[in-house]
């Protein structure tokens, strides 16, 4: 599984990354977490508001920090 966190280094983006990692740790899921910080790369992925999270190339949330439970839902199925 590949999880991408989009955001150009804002405080909320760090928070999002932490939450993703926490959800992975709590569920014991193995996944690769990538941070995408390049502005053009974020835009060309079709994302217009950060922080955004994509799981296996599918964008799950944009413009907000998701909750741990939300992320658990995404990674479990």
């Amino acid at each position: 599984m590949k999880i991408a966190v989009y955001g150009a280094g804002c405080a909320k983006c760090h928070k999002t990354e932490e939450i993703v990692k926490q959800a992975l740790a709590e569920t014991g899921t193995e996944a690769e977490v990538v941070k995408v910080t390049d502005f053009k790369e974020i835009i060309t992925a079709g994302i217009m508001s950060t922080p955004a999270v994509a799981v296996d190339e599918v964008v799950k949330s944009t413009g907000r920090v998701p909750s741990v439970n939300e992320v658990k839902g995404w990674i479990s199925g």
Binding site: T44, A45, G46, T62, S67
Partner: peptide, 17 residues
């Protein structure tokens, strides 16, 4: 700008969210 747009899942927020 080249676009490789990813699929986007509709938001499933409930009122509490």
């Amino acid at each position: 700008a080249a676009v490789h747009r990813l699929a986007m899942e509709p938001s499933q927020m409930v009122m509490e969210d």
